[in-house]
Amino acid sequence: SPVALPPFFMRGSIIQLADGELKRVEDLKTEDFIQSAEISSELKIDSSTVERIDSGQTPNAVVIQFSVGELKAQVCVEVLVEYPFFVFGQGWSSCCPDRTTQLFELSCAKLCVGDVCVSLTLRSLR
């Protein structure tokens, strides 16, 4: 694959929360992201709803259109099909959960239109 996979999605990766607590990536919960963002002076959690999922430029890529935050700003990102997003109340989800599990050993649900993902914005952005 020409695109390097982020190492931190590999099962067993150690993640440091904003309060210093260490957790494995597969053990993260929605509250961990919410509480970490509450502590952060710069970052704010937004709810980003999946509006559309289309094919990307290459066969293993998808373009995901999100509706971000209270303003419902439309943001598109192109990612590999195995790229996991964290869905509120559900956990890691990707467009191709089988491939995510195969590559990262990370259990994943299928990312669907309507899912609400954890995303970040800068607190100073308005």
Binding site: F8, F9, S13, Q16, V77, L120, L125
Partner: peptide
Amino acid sequence: VPVFPWHSLVPFLAPTQSD
């Protein structure tokens, strides 16, 4: 063992400024 910050796992989706 590498330790990664929590925010590296979350996409940064900045809405385009419209004002």
